[in-house]
Design a protein around this nucleic acid. Sequence first.
DNA 1: CCTCCAATACTCTACGTTGAGTATTCTACA
DNA 2: TGTAGAATACTCAACGTAGAGTATTGGAGG
Lengths: 182, 182
Amino acid sequence: MTRVLVLGLLDVQPMSGYDIQQMLRISDAERWGGVLIGSIYHALKKMEKEGLVAVESIEQTGHRQKAIYKITATGREHLSQLVGESLANSSVNYPSTLYSGLSFIEKVAPEKALAALNSQLVALEKEYQALESGFRLKDIAMHQNIPPMTKLIFDNMYAIVNQQRAFVENAIKLLESQQTGN
Amino acid sequence: MTRVLVLGLLDVQPMSGYDIQQMLRISDAERWGGVLIGSIYHALKKMEKEGLVAVESIEQTGHRQKAIYKITATGREHLSQLVGESLANSSVNYPSTLYSGLSFIEKVAPEKALAALNSQLVALEKEYQALESGFRLKDIAMHQNIPPMTKLIFDNMYAIVNQQRAFVENAIKLLESQQTGN
DNA sequence: CCTCCAATACTCTACGTTGAGTATTCTACA
DNA sequence: TGTAGAATACTCAACGTAGAGTATTGGAGG
């Protein structure tokens, strides 16, 4: 996924690792991608060895220099390949951390478990609001002309957060009913 | 997550890395956890150094030996801690691979993109059916007495697969409408 | 003009994941 | 009784992730 994002951005125009970082930070990819600094530079180095990208130039500013990378023809083919795979592969990923926690929930005291689940509910609420305000900002920036695919992705993110919210609420209800012995 | 599962199982009874592997394979965790061989042994070695687990005994069978691990008191505390965190942390994880593919969908020919998305739909359908038959088998094995928490988790998995199915269907519709120029 | 903080542009190492690979033992069946 | 293949039990190196750390430059305020 890191590779798709890096190659995709370099295909728009040559840029440095830092620029890629900034691009990802500004775009929605920040929220769902969570690509970290180290991964970007690692991907660039790796793909350079593989001939998918190349250093176009090195800009000097005083004693500091930055490498401007560009995508190669092979890289463009590879990108197309990767995008195809990303579209074809199953996109389900279960919240395994939560599942494993619930599987061994008896390892913590019921009050602690309830407190923990409630704090997750707060986190989910926060995520939902961050999504909403992010969307509003984008909507204004693009003058109410958000591309339909971006809209679809946002809707999917809303749906996922809501789904998890309902799930956690049900888990809480179940725990409470078990605690009172009903 | 690997640690929670490994510690949780060792807390039931001492066993070897291979036994843990088998336990996970049999349980539902196989489907959502996807914990791989290497990760289990790595976790065991690491946690042994940290004093969370210890080798209880080494069973010899001819020239082959297997190490039976047990959880320590510190390990039990740690498990409780980890379960608490698993319950408290946000459980949303977006299908970033698909999102990145969709973000750069124009890098592949429209027919290829459609074909790829349709093959994902097939994969999702397969996953749904695997879920259903897995649940039925479990239901029979437990004589229609599946624990409510397990039921909740299964329902969440169904919901997630359905959500992704709807999402991919909408993406396909959007692509088709763009292709015909509506 | 100086100073301090934010921004720029990476480097580096620790860590977990991945799954092919290795080696041994068991077992079914011919 | 021999043997092919499944099951057992783990090793190992390549790889990607993670994010703190380092070093330099730009800019705002006193």
